[in-house]
């Protein structure tokens, strides 16, 4: 093999999966991530849906599979570059340049900034949290309100910054429904006596084992599901949160006071990825995620034969999908580089 150089931008699950494939096919691989740790968002989660597998174990498996020959640059951001026929030039944040024969974009997603939905009071009221903060509390093994008290009641709100035209987001973020159900169950185990609610518009339990998890949440874990979107939240003098919704199934307005309100925030393209896409000449969809050649077939391909897309930079994905697409994108890149030279 001629040792062509491939750069992978992003060392999340998708980037890691891609980097485990390419060296074995004879490529020289550089993987860059602006964070100081490997694993992207996976490194922030505690237990995974639907089977509550430990996130640390998966992360370890993914990093173990990366051959030593991969050169990993952490704490470095790709800020610009250009793509020409057969070559890719990338610029990093410290002004360095990298040349490559092929590029894998695995820049992933960012969580929607919950402060943008002011009516829910995130960043204003003490006891409004995001699901990412709850994952962190699980990792620390301690669930408590901002005033260090054990919560007696907790409400999850689905679809925050997803399916919301007012927030400029039309799409569904796909994983937050099952995450909300998973977290409700995990909370129940830590707080046997608490009242736990999920306020939803639709419950999208598409994956294997997801609907079963929902059923367990109802039957075994006594989670109360309310079909209605919370319209607004207010803070009471003791720091609890008063929420308003309609229970659409009984057609009655509803008021509830909870010790914690947890917002299930959606996914959006990673910061800077729009600018980077513009510089590299990559196409964005109406949802601002990178747009592949096809949505059914060729979901890794771009208009350049030597640039491919992997993971949630193309829209909300599960880990399963991110990992599979990382491997598939690597193979797709190999095929087209092989075709280019043979």
């Amino acid at each position: 093999m001629d040792g062509k150089h491939i750069v992978i931008v992003g060392a999340g699950p998708a980037g890691l999966a891609a980097s485990s494939v390419l060296p074995r096919l004879g490529y020289r691989v550089t993987m860059i991530d602006r964070s100081n740790t490997l694993g992207g968002h996976l490194s922030k989660w505690y237990q995974l849906f639907p089977d509550r597998a430990a996130a640390t174990v998966l992360l370890e498996q993914l990093t173990d599979e990366v051959p030593d020959s991969v050169s990993t640059m952490l704490g470095r951001e790709v800020t610009g570059g250009s793509v020409s026929s057969g070559a890719v030039e990338l610029t990093l944040d410290h002004g360095e340049h990298l040349s490559a024969n092929g590029l894998i974009m695995a820049t992933g997603f960012d969580l929607f900034d919950a402060r943008r939905k002011e009516e829910y009071g995130y960043g204003i009221y003490d006891n409004v949290f995001t699901q990412a903060e709850i994952e962190e509390m699980f990792r620390q093994g301690q669930i408590e309100t901002r005033h260090h008290r054990k919560p007696r009641s907790i409400a999850f709100l689905h679809c925050v910054g997803s399916r919301d035209l007012k927030a400029g987001v039309a799409y569904c973020s796909k994983v937050c429904c099952v995450t909300g159900v998973k977290q409700a169950i995990e909370l129940r185990e830590l707080l046997p006596d608490a009242a736990i609610y999920n306020f939803y518009m639709d419950l999208r339990m598409f994956g294997r084992g997801f609907e079963e998890l929902y059923q367990q949440a109802q039957e075994r874990y006594n989670i109360r599901f309310v079909r209605g979107r919370i319209s607004e939240a207010a803070e009471s003098s003791d720091g609890s949160v008063i929420i308003k919704a309609e229970d659409t199934l009984t057609s009655r307005p509803l008021k509830l006071t909870v010790d914690m309100l947890v917002l299930l925030t959606g996914m959006q393209p990673a910061a800077g990825s729009l600018e980077l896409a513009a510089k590299l000449g990559l196409v964005l969809g109406d949802d601002s995620f990178l747009k592949p050649y096809g949505l059914t077939q060729q979901t890794f391909k771009t208009s350049y034969p030597h640039v491919v897309l992997a993971g949630s930079c193309t829209g909300p994905t599960t880990l399963t999908e991110a990992i599979l697409s990382g491997r598939s994108a690597a193979m797709a890149l190999h095929e087209s580089l092989f075709k280019l030279t043979n």
Binding site: R163, M201, D202, R227, G228, R229, I230, S231, E232, K244, A245, E246, D247, T248, S251, P253, L254
Partner: peptide, 13 residues
């Protein structure tokens, strides 16, 4: 999509 936000906030409801 029948989410009920309007009914929850509605003055008359």
């Amino acid at each position: 999509i029948g989410c009920g936000s309007c009914s929850a906030t509605c003055t008359a409801a």
